[in-house]
Nucleic acid binder design. Structure first.
Length: 418
RNA sequence: GCGGUCGUGGUGAAGCGGUUAACACACCGGAUUGUGGCUCCGGCACUCGAGGGUUCGAAUCCCUUCGAUCGCCCCA
């Protein structure tokens, strides 16, 4: 019996790193005045069918769906937005003070072949803002995401932004694209051909040489935007500049989910492996709240793939805090000393110190070795002699200095040295 | 769903048809009696992902299967 495909265990060693990511994200969100929301890890399947879009790859072939004992179809969440929107609607949060600014953190599930930076259970940190159409909010959200990477010390994150208009505009644009590419159909590579009627925008970033040539002359979505969308894009750009967020307008940027309107953006970093250059993305979804049964409230958010963030950290050799070292390791010899050391251990811990002892009946030497391995700052040695004198030996591991002190001075001694 | 590569102890790996499966690291123990990080010595794979086949003989060749990994599609 093994671990399910595309999943992995996060062992204690790595958990430290995850705590760190969460801490950075939380602190950041706090400063931006976002609040954490926790929604279920699974939802009714219909939520994603309606919310994410029936024709998206996610819904068509990547959902982890199952029926429960009452035959209800449920799905492990493939992304965060739909559930958060559902919660926003269901709890009538739109009736409260707006905008609503939320963030979340947690596992997502997609049935795909695992590869570099892609898993079936992966983790996202995301943000959603409801109730404001102000382009300044778009800029805030984009800037918050970028700040996250920066706080972690990841370099060279590029922000790509675009405006994808609304579903009507996109439909019209798709038509034009198809119209444009159809005469070249025979010359397109096989991938592009298959994309032609499904998602012609994808042809635009083809890696195939001839396809690329053809695509250079293809119409840009920016020429199809209505006045409102155009203006919106300009405003977002303006505020990004105010926030000193560098960006590139990328008129070929599309996102995989159907619900996006207006602003769409991506965070990218070079050389992360074929799948992983995009380390986060998001956009506006002005129709989604209504689509899911709420009032006409607009929204915008992003999702950041944490496995990919970890990849970037690793690749850029960014150092990450490690677990706190042991304050003290208790070494004891003999039955009586053991009893005393167990008692002392409890006292040290009550005093707030990180303390440990040997539970494998190791010899003195091996106990010291263990203390060393555990990175203990101090070792306390307790044997017959010490017991008789009510003293303990305390040794500072780094310097090797060892002194004898009264047993009841131990806690204060260690707290001082901390 | 499709394609490439790979699968030997806790880990990294050698071996690629012939009696006891290198080596390194890790781990455990020891180098006279109560002291770590260095050194030295010793221990640690009824077995080479699993199943089948070829052969006098296979970790080494063939088939199947499972798994990992990378890539395509798509995405975080």
């Amino acid at each position: 019996m093994g671990i399910p495909r595309g999943t992995y265990d996060i062992l204690p060693n790595e958990v430290v790193t995850w705590h760190y990511l969460e801490k950075i994200a939380r602190q950041l969100c706090e400063r931006y005045a976002y609040e954490e929301i926790r929604t279920p890890i699974f939802e009714e399947t219909a939520l994603y069918e309606r919310g994410v879009g029936e024709t998206t790859d996610i819904v068509e072939k990547e959902m982890y769906s199952f029926t429960d004992r009452k035959n209800r179809s449920l799905t492990l969440r493939p992304e965060g937005t739909a559930g958060v929107v559902r919660s926003f609607v269901e709890n009538k949060v739109y009736a409260e003070l707006q905008p609503t600014k939320w963030y979340y953190f947690g596992p997502m599930f997609r049935y795909e072949r695992p590869q570099a930076g892609r898993y079936r259970q992966f983790h996202q940190f995301g943000v959603e803002v409801f109730g404001s159409d102000d382009p300044a909010i778009d800029a805030e959200v984009i800037s918050l995401g970028l700040e996250f990477y920066r706080s972690l010390g990841i370099e060279g994150v590029r922000v790509g932004i675009n405006n994808v208009g609304n579903p009507e505009i996109r439909a019209k644009y798709f038509e034009k694209l198809i119209e444009y590419f159809t005469p070249f159909e025979a010359e397109l590579d096989t991938d592009a051909k298959s994309r032609l009627y499904r998602n012609p925008m994808r042809i635009l970033d083809s890696k195939h040489k001839r396809t690329q040539e053809i695509a250079t002359e293809a119409p840009s979505i920016l020429d199809f935007l209505d006045k409102e969308s155009m203006e919106n894009l300009e405003q977002v750009k303006f505020y990004l500049e105010e926030l000193q967020v560098p960006y590139d307008v990328n008129n070929r940027l599309v996102r995989g989910l159907d619900y996006y309107t207006q602003t769409a953006f991506e965070y990218m970093v070079e050389e992360l492996g074929a799948q992983a250059s995009t380390i986060g993305g998001g956009g506006r979804y002005n129709g989604l709240v209504k689509e899911l049964g709420g009032p006409e409230v607009s929204g915008i958010g992003f999702g950041i793939g944490l496995e990919r963030v970890l990849l970037a950290l690793k690749q850029q050799n960014v150092s990450i805090p490690t677990a706190a070292p042991l304050d003290c390791f208790l070494v004891s010899m003999g039955e009586e000393a053991k009893k005393a050391s167990v008692r002392i251990l409890g006292e040290l811990r009550k005093a707030g110190l990180k303390a440990e002892r040997d539970y494998l009946d190791r010899k003195l030497k091996a106990q010291l070795k263990t203390a060393n391995r555990l990175n203990a700052r101090y070792v306390v040695i307790l044997g017959e002699e010490e017991l008789a004198n009510n003293q303990i030996q305390i040794k500072q591991m780094e310097t090797g200095e060892q002194t004898s002190i009264a047993m009841d001075k131990l806690v204060s001694y260690l707290l001082e040295g901390k």
